[in-house]
Amino acid sequence: MKLINADWPAPAHVRALTTTRLGGVSRAPYDSLNLGDHVADDAEPVARNRQRLIEQLGLSKQPQWLTQVHGIELVKACDDGIAEQADACWSNDVGQACIVMTADCLPVFFTDRSGTKIAVAHAGWRGLADGVLEQTLSVFSDPAEVMVWLGPAIGPEVFEVGHEVRQQFCAYLPESEVAFKLSVNPDKWLADIYQLARLRLIRAGVSASEIYGGEYCTYQQSELFYSYRRDGVTGRMASIIWIS
Protein backbone atom coordinates (compact mmCIF):
# COMPACT_ATOMS: atom_id res chain seq x y z
CA MET A 1 0.00 0.00 0.00
CA LYS A 2 1.50 3.32 -1.08
CA LEU A 3 0.55 6.30 1.06
CA ILE A 4 1.43 10.00 0.76
CA ASN A 5 2.15 11.66 4.08
CA ALA A 6 1.26 15.32 4.51
CA ASP A 7 4.33 17.49 4.02
CA TRP A 8 3.74 20.18 6.64
CA PRO A 9 5.26 21.08 10.04
CA ALA A 10 2.33 19.82 12.10
CA PRO A 11 2.95 18.46 15.60
CA ALA A 12 4.30 14.90 15.49
CA HIS A 13 1.19 13.45 17.10
CA VAL A 14 -0.99 14.74 14.24
CA ARG A 15 -1.03 12.09 11.52
CA ALA A 16 -2.25 13.09 8.06
CA LEU A 17 -2.00 11.25 4.75
CA THR A 18 -3.67 10.45 1.46
CA THR A 19 -3.96 6.99 -0.04
CA THR A 20 -3.10 6.26 -3.65
CA ARG A 21 -4.73 3.72 -5.94
CA LEU A 22 -1.98 1.18 -5.14
CA GLY A 23 -2.09 -1.73 -2.72
CA GLY A 24 -5.65 -2.98 -2.64
CA VAL A 25 -7.79 -5.83 -3.96
CA SER A 26 -10.36 -4.12 -6.24
CA ARG A 27 -10.39 -5.13 -9.91
CA ALA A 28 -10.34 -2.85 -12.96
CA PRO A 29 -11.51 -0.18 -13.45
CA TYR A 30 -11.27 0.29 -9.68
CA ASP A 31 -7.82 -1.21 -9.36
CA SER A 32 -6.74 -1.51 -6.74
CA LEU A 33 -7.14 0.38 -3.44
CA ASN A 34 -10.62 1.75 -4.04
CA LEU A 35 -12.10 3.00 -0.78
CA GLY A 36 -15.33 4.43 -2.20
CA ASP A 37 -18.51 2.43 -1.56
CA HIS A 38 -20.61 4.58 -3.92
CA VAL A 39 -18.89 3.99 -7.28
CA ALA A 40 -20.40 0.60 -8.27
CA ASP A 41 -17.37 -1.43 -7.15
CA ASP A 42 -18.22 -4.73 -5.44
CA ALA A 43 -18.87 -4.24 -1.73
CA GLU A 44 -16.56 -7.05 -0.62
CA PRO A 45 -13.27 -5.68 -2.02
CA VAL A 46 -14.15 -2.17 -0.80
CA ALA A 47 -14.69 -3.54 2.71
CA ARG A 48 -11.40 -5.44 2.51
CA ASN A 49 -9.58 -2.34 1.30
CA ARG A 50 -10.99 -0.27 4.14
CA GLN A 51 -10.06 -2.89 6.72
CA ARG A 52 -6.57 -3.21 5.26
CA LEU A 53 -6.13 0.55 5.58
CA ILE A 54 -7.37 0.61 9.19
CA GLU A 55 -4.98 -2.19 10.12
CA GLN A 56 -1.99 -0.64 8.36
CA LEU A 57 -2.55 2.69 10.11
CA GLY A 58 -3.14 1.01 13.46
CA LEU A 59 -6.39 2.88 14.09
CA SER A 60 -7.99 1.91 17.40
CA LYS A 61 -11.38 3.46 16.60
CA GLN A 62 -13.72 3.16 13.64
CA PRO A 63 -12.91 6.13 11.37
CA GLN A 64 -15.55 8.62 10.34
CA TRP A 65 -16.59 7.92 6.75
CA LEU A 66 -18.81 10.45 5.00
CA THR A 67 -21.50 10.45 2.35
CA GLN A 68 -20.32 13.46 0.36
CA VAL A 69 -22.67 15.71 -1.59
CA HIS A 70 -20.42 18.61 -2.73
CA GLY A 71 -21.84 20.79 0.04
CA ILE A 72 -20.44 22.57 3.08
CA GLU A 73 -21.84 20.50 5.96
CA LEU A 74 -19.31 19.90 8.76
CA VAL A 75 -19.70 17.17 11.39
CA LYS A 76 -17.74 16.04 14.42
CA ALA A 77 -16.22 12.62 13.81
CA CYS A 78 -17.25 9.66 15.94
CA ASP A 79 -16.72 5.89 15.84
CA ASP A 80 -20.32 4.68 15.67
CA GLY A 81 -19.89 3.40 12.10
CA ILE A 82 -22.51 5.77 10.65
CA ALA A 83 -21.51 7.51 7.42
CA GLU A 84 -22.72 11.07 7.98
CA GLN A 85 -23.90 13.18 5.01
CA ALA A 86 -21.30 15.93 5.00
CA ASP A 87 -18.24 17.17 3.15
CA ALA A 88 -15.99 17.91 6.12
CA CYS A 89 -15.37 16.52 9.58
CA TRP A 90 -13.30 17.43 12.63
CA SER A 91 -12.18 15.95 15.91
CA ASN A 92 -10.37 16.75 19.13
CA ASP A 93 -10.44 13.15 20.35
CA VAL A 94 -7.25 11.08 20.40
CA GLY A 95 -7.41 8.20 17.93
CA GLN A 96 -10.51 9.38 16.06
CA ALA A 97 -9.74 9.55 12.35
CA CYS A 98 -11.52 11.96 10.00
CA ILE A 99 -11.77 10.93 6.33
CA VAL A 100 -12.86 12.43 3.02
CA MET A 101 -12.70 10.69 -0.35
CA THR A 102 -11.62 12.23 -3.65
CA ALA A 103 -10.78 11.48 -7.28
CA ASP A 104 -9.89 15.00 -8.57
CA CYS A 105 -11.55 17.17 -5.92
CA LEU A 106 -9.25 18.80 -3.37
CA PRO A 107 -8.75 17.29 0.10
CA VAL A 108 -7.80 20.00 2.61
CA PHE A 109 -6.27 19.13 5.99
CA PHE A 110 -6.36 21.43 9.04
CA THR A 111 -4.71 21.46 12.46
CA ASP A 112 -4.02 24.07 15.09
CA ARG A 113 -0.40 24.65 16.07
CA SER A 114 -0.74 22.62 19.27
CA GLY A 115 -2.38 19.69 17.49
CA THR A 116 -5.38 19.60 19.81
CA LYS A 117 -7.96 19.86 17.04
CA ILE A 118 -7.90 18.53 13.48
CA ALA A 119 -10.18 18.54 10.43
CA VAL A 120 -10.35 17.57 6.78
CA ALA A 121 -12.60 18.90 3.99
CA HIS A 122 -13.64 17.68 0.53
CA ALA A 123 -13.48 20.66 -1.82
CA GLY A 124 -14.69 20.32 -5.35
CA TRP A 125 -15.29 23.61 -7.11
CA ARG A 126 -18.88 23.81 -5.89
CA GLY A 127 -18.02 23.24 -2.25
CA LEU A 128 -15.03 25.54 -2.51
CA ALA A 129 -17.14 28.34 -4.00
CA ASP A 130 -19.93 27.82 -1.45
CA GLY A 131 -17.54 28.04 1.53
CA VAL A 132 -16.66 24.52 2.74
CA LEU A 133 -13.18 25.68 3.79
CA GLU A 134 -14.53 28.64 5.74
CA GLN A 135 -17.10 26.36 7.37
CA THR A 136 -14.37 23.94 8.41
CA LEU A 137 -12.24 26.75 9.83
CA SER A 138 -15.18 27.77 12.03
CA VAL A 139 -14.36 25.03 14.55
CA PHE A 140 -10.98 26.65 15.27
CA SER A 141 -10.89 29.61 17.65
CA ASP A 142 -8.24 31.52 15.66
CA PRO A 143 -7.60 30.91 11.94
CA ALA A 144 -4.21 32.60 12.33
CA GLU A 145 -3.16 29.64 14.51
CA VAL A 146 -4.19 27.05 11.90
CA MET A 147 -1.94 25.30 9.38
CA VAL A 148 -3.26 23.64 6.24
CA TRP A 149 -2.07 20.99 3.79
CA LEU A 150 -3.58 20.75 0.32
CA GLY A 151 -3.67 17.11 -0.74
CA PRO A 152 -3.63 15.63 -4.25
CA ALA A 153 -6.19 17.11 -6.67
CA ILE A 154 -6.61 17.82 -10.37
CA GLY A 155 -3.86 20.14 -11.58
CA PRO A 156 -4.11 23.59 -13.15
CA GLU A 157 -3.06 22.41 -16.63
CA VAL A 158 -6.10 20.16 -17.08
CA PHE A 159 -8.92 21.42 -14.83
CA GLU A 160 -11.22 22.94 -17.42
CA VAL A 161 -14.29 24.89 -16.31
CA GLY A 162 -16.89 27.15 -17.84
CA HIS A 163 -17.20 30.92 -17.65
CA GLU A 164 -19.88 30.66 -14.95
CA VAL A 165 -17.44 28.94 -12.58
CA ARG A 166 -14.82 31.65 -13.03
CA GLN A 167 -17.49 34.31 -12.59
CA GLN A 168 -18.70 32.78 -9.33
CA PHE A 169 -15.23 32.78 -7.77
CA CYS A 170 -14.28 36.24 -9.01
CA ALA A 171 -17.56 37.79 -7.86
CA TYR A 172 -16.77 36.73 -4.30
CA LEU A 173 -13.03 37.40 -4.43
CA PRO A 174 -11.74 39.44 -7.40
CA GLU A 175 -8.18 38.23 -6.74
CA SER A 176 -9.34 34.83 -7.94
CA GLU A 177 -8.70 36.02 -11.51
CA VAL A 178 -5.06 34.93 -11.10
CA ALA A 179 -6.20 31.31 -10.71
CA PHE A 180 -7.72 31.15 -14.20
CA LYS A 181 -6.24 31.17 -17.69
CA LEU A 182 -7.89 30.72 -21.05
CA SER A 183 -8.17 27.20 -22.39
CA VAL A 184 -7.55 26.25 -26.00
CA ASN A 185 -11.23 25.26 -26.10
CA PRO A 186 -13.71 28.08 -26.78
CA ASP A 187 -15.47 29.61 -23.77
CA LYS A 188 -13.47 27.47 -21.35
CA TRP A 189 -10.96 28.31 -18.65
CA LEU A 190 -8.24 26.32 -16.89
CA ALA A 191 -8.66 26.67 -13.13
CA ASP A 192 -6.01 26.26 -10.44
CA ILE A 193 -8.00 24.73 -7.60
CA TYR A 194 -4.96 24.89 -5.33
CA GLN A 195 -4.63 28.63 -5.83
CA LEU A 196 -8.36 29.16 -5.39
CA ALA A 197 -8.19 27.32 -2.07
CA ARG A 198 -5.16 29.34 -0.93
CA LEU A 199 -6.92 32.61 -1.71
CA ARG A 200 -10.05 31.58 0.20
CA LEU A 201 -8.02 30.40 3.19
CA ILE A 202 -5.99 33.60 3.33
CA ARG A 203 -9.17 35.66 3.07
CA ALA A 204 -10.52 33.65 6.04
CA GLY A 205 -7.48 34.46 8.18
CA VAL A 206 -5.00 31.60 7.61
CA SER A 207 -1.43 32.82 7.16
CA ALA A 208 -0.12 32.34 3.61
CA SER A 209 3.08 30.89 5.09
CA GLU A 210 1.06 28.16 6.84
CA ILE A 211 -0.55 26.72 3.69
CA TYR A 212 1.37 23.76 2.29
CA GLY A 213 1.04 21.19 -0.51
CA GLY A 214 -0.54 21.52 -3.92
CA GLU A 215 2.07 19.80 -6.08
CA TYR A 216 0.18 16.75 -7.40
CA CYS A 217 -2.18 16.22 -10.34
CA THR A 218 -4.63 13.34 -10.02
CA TYR A 219 -5.56 13.58 -13.71
CA GLN A 220 -2.02 13.42 -15.11
CA GLN A 221 -0.47 11.03 -12.56
CA SER A 222 -2.57 8.03 -13.57
CA GLU A 223 -0.20 5.47 -12.04
CA LEU A 224 -0.82 6.90 -8.57
CA PHE A 225 -4.30 8.38 -8.52
CA TYR A 226 -7.89 7.84 -9.49
CA SER A 227 -9.38 10.61 -11.62
CA TYR A 228 -13.07 10.97 -12.34
CA ARG A 229 -12.46 13.48 -15.14
CA ARG A 230 -9.94 11.20 -16.80
CA ASP A 231 -11.72 7.85 -16.46
CA GLY A 232 -15.35 8.42 -15.51
CA VAL A 233 -15.85 5.03 -13.85
CA THR A 234 -13.11 4.83 -11.24
CA GLY A 235 -12.28 4.45 -7.56
CA ARG A 236 -11.66 6.93 -4.76
CA MET A 237 -8.67 7.82 -2.60
CA ALA A 238 -9.05 8.57 1.09
CA SER A 239 -7.54 11.54 2.90
CA ILE A 240 -7.18 10.80 6.61
CA ILE A 241 -6.16 12.84 9.64
CA TRP A 242 -6.13 11.93 13.34
CA ILE A 243 -4.47 12.72 16.67
CA SER A 244 -2.32 9.74 17.67
Rank of each mutant, 00 (worst) to 15 (best):
K2L: 15
I4F: 05
I4D: 01
N5W: 15
N5I: 06
W8E: 10
P9C: 11
A12I: 06
H13W: 03
H13G: 02
T18N: 13
T19Y: 12
T19M: 12
T20Q: 02
R21Q: 09
G23N: 06
G23L: 09
G24R: 04
G24I: 06
V25K: 06
V25S: 14
S26L: 09
Y30S: 14
Y30M: 15
D31W: 08
S32V: 02
L33C: 00
L35R: 08
G36T: 01
V39I: 15
A40F: 11
D41T: 13
D42A: 13
E55G: 06
Q56T: 06
G58E: 01
G58Y: 04
Q62A: 08
P63N: 02
Q64M: 12
Q64G: 08
W65C: 07
L66E: 09
T67E: 05
T67H: 04
H70T: 06
I72Q: 09
I72P: 04
V75W: 07
K76N: 03
K76V: 05
C78H: 03
D79W: 02
G81T: 10
G81P: 11
G81D: 12
G81F: 12
E84T: 00
E84V: 00
A88Y: 02
C89S: 10
C89Q: 00
W90Y: 14
M101V: 02
M101Q: 12
T102Y: 04
A103W: 00
C105V: 13
P107K: 13
V108W: 08
G115W: 11
G115R: 11
A119I: 04
V120K: 03
A123V: 08
G124C: 14
D130C: 06
G131Q: 13
T136A: 13
T136L: 02
L137V: 13
S138Y: 07
S138L: 08
F140P: 07
S141E: 13
P143S: 09
L150K: 04
L150F: 09
P152D: 02
G155N: 13
E157R: 13
E157M: 08
E164W: 03
V165L: 12
R166D: 11
Q168P: 00
Q168A: 03
C170T: 15
A171Y: 09
Y172H: 09
L173C: 14
E175W: 07
S176P: 08
F180A: 12
S183G: 03
V184N: 05
V184R: 05
P186T: 04
P186S: 09
W189L: 06
W189V: 03
L190V: 00
D192C: 13
Q195I: 05
L199R: 12
R203D: 15
R203S: 15
R203M: 11
V206R: 04
V206F: 06
A208R: 10
S209M: 04
I211F: 11
G213V: 12
G214S: 14
E215K: 11
C217K: 10
Y219A: 00
Q220V: 11
S222D: 15
S222L: 03
E223S: 14
F225N: 10
Y226I: 11
Y228A: 14
R230N: 07
R230G: 03
D231T: 14
T234G: 10
G235A: 05
R236V: 00
R236I: 00
R236A: 06
M237R: 00
I241T: 01
I241C: 01
W242N: 01
S244F: 02
